[in-house]
Computed example of a mutant assay.
Amino acid sequence: MNRNNEPGLGELLRYVSELVEFGAEEHYQQMGLNYRARYTPVLRAIRSGAQTVTEITTCTHLTQSAISQTVGHMEADGVISRQRGEDARKSVIQLTPVGKELMAKLSSHWTATFNVIEQLEEEIGYPLRSVLKDTARALERQGFSQRLTHIKQNLAAGGTNDE
């Protein structure tokens, strides 16, 4: 099988992510919201009780850098505010009145979003979220780089990539 023209895993994941994000952004515009899809994981984490960048990072599985950058944009857009916590090294993140209003508008939208995800999973015949969670757990156990090294060593030793 010639794999030279096949998209790789990262490429497909980014493409699907872009399709989802583009659709979400389009819908936010239709709702009349000045809102970025990247705010969603942060707002959902806050709704679940997260109050610091570290707690949001843990809830979302996104990098601390990505969350910090998103929190900065959200603060600039007036969605959240940050106050020094008891531990002066950490800021407590809170919704502003604008953020609370936004959260109220988005709550039913997120319910509809999960309904769409369930319909999509039904249409494709795969529990996509479960597959992605299982993939993430497998890569946490043994990283992609380690797996590449193992395969390359097998190939160099005259083995096959099926080992």
Rank of each mutant, 00 (worst) to 15 (best):
I80Q: 05
I80A: 09
S81W: 10
R82T: 02
R82K: 15
R82Q: 08
Q83A: 12
Q83D: 14
G85V: 13
G85D: 06
G85N: 02
A88V: 10
R89D: 11
S91R: 10
V92S: 11
I93W: 04
Q94M: 07
Q94W: 04
Q94T: 09
L95K: 13
L95R: 09
T96A: 06
T96M: 08
T96I: 04
V98S: 04
G99Q: 02
G99K: 04
M103P: 06
A104K: 12
K105P: 02
K105R: 14
K105L: 11
L106D: 03
S108C: 07
H109L: 09
H109P: 00
W110V: 12
W110P: 00
A112N: 09
F114T: 10
F114V: 08
V116H: 15
V116T: 11
V116G: 04
L120M: 13
L120R: 10
E121C: 09
E122D: 10
E123F: 13
I124G: 01
I124Y: 08
P127I: 05
L128Q: 02
R129E: 10
S130N: 13
S130W: 02
L132P: 02
L132G: 01
L132I: 02
K133C: 01
D134P: 06
A136L: 04
A136Q: 08
A136I: 08
A136T: 12
A138S: 12
A138G: 00
Q142I: 10
